[in-house]
């Protein structure tokens, strides 16, 4: 029995290591490129480890390319978006999952439907709408709509809420809990994993979103990191590879850190078994 277990664990490790190499390889290339000078990038044959190491791309990000300002703008938009989307979506998802009301499934189909129309054709009318509201050139079009729920998060959380056994809430009801209490005391604590997943994805999408900031912001000083990165890649005729890769990595780092902490909530069974008594 234990032999089988050990063998399986070894196999798992081998697979994980093998896949990790495949998955890490391009990342490694990005990292080494970010420490090269522009000329070193074109060395033939390619040098895996840069010689000498050049730290200037990272320096240039923050001096010439104003990454500090853009970083702050991106943090601002992302944090507010996170608050907006997670708060509103979890409430809405609970509404869709817990209650029975007329036309519920039709409304849910409409919710799914709104994701099916590609942004290319709603972009201009959407812009005209925000223009009429006088929001162009501010962060408002990026932030305010997020307080009305994010479709993706609503859908994800509903799928999870649906799996929560009714008995839990029935029991709470007998103890005199109202719907809001059931939501905050039972559903939310049970949905730690999907909520941290949602936080992760919303963070990632907002952090790297290019099109919305590009369309709605009109001032250089309000731009976000993704636009700054675009400027590096398409600005001059030749791509400044080290700068580009350094920028990409700086941009990716917060997401990686967030992921590393979020995945800790993915520890099997902890959430539900605790509530059994």
């Amino acid at each position: 029995m234990t032999k089988v277990k050990t063998r399986r664990l070894v196999l798992t490790y081998m697979f994980a290591v093998f896949m990790s190499i495949l998955f890490l390889f391009p990342f490694l290339w990005m990292t080494t490129t970010s420490f090269k000078t522009a000329d070193q990038v074109y060395d033939n044959p390619m040098q895996i480890i840069p010689n000498p190491f050049d730290f200037s791309p990272y320096q240039r990000l923050f001096t010439e390319n104003n990454f500090g300002q853009y970083l702050w703008n991106t943090v601002y938009v992302t944090v507010l978006t996170l608050i907006g989307v997670i708060l509103s979506s979890s409430v809405v998802a609970f509404g869709f999952s817990y209650f029975r009301f007329p036309k519920k499934e039709l409304l849910f189909k409409i919710l799914l439907g709104t994701m099916m129309l590609p942004a290319q054709v709603t972009m201009i009318p959407q812009y005209i709408l925000f223009d009429k509201l006088g929001w162009i050139g501010s962060f408002k079009p990026l932030i305010i709509p997020t307080f009305f729920g994010g479709t993706w998060v609503i859908f994800l959380l509903r799928q999870f809420f649906d799996t929560i056994p009714r008995e839990y809430s029935e029991a709470a009801k007998i103890d005199g809990a109202n719907e809001w209490t059931i939501f905050t005391k039972i559903y939310l604590p049970l949905a730690k994993a999907p909520i941290s997943t949602s936080v992760l994805f919303v963070f990632m999408w907002t952090w790297t979103d290019f099109m919305n900031p590009l369309i709605y912001l009109t001032d250089d000083k309000m731009y976000t990191l993704s636009i700054a990165l675009q400027r590096i890649s398409s600005g001059a005729r030749s791509t400044d590879w080290p700068l580009m890769m350094a920028g990409s990595l700086v941009m990716a780092l917060p997401i990686v850190i967030l992921f590393f902490s979020a995945q800790k909530t993915f520890i099997n069974g902890a959430s539900m078994s605790g509530l059994k008594g």
């Binding site: 972009m123 812009y127 005209i128 223009d131 050139g137 398409s234």
Partner: peptide, 22 residues
Amino acid sequence: SVYVPIGMGEKIMTTLSGSTTP
């Protein structure tokens, strides 16, 4: 002067359909 990457048809076409343009 504001940097707006050329070839960004989306930015140009949305902005031109609004009331405040560069």
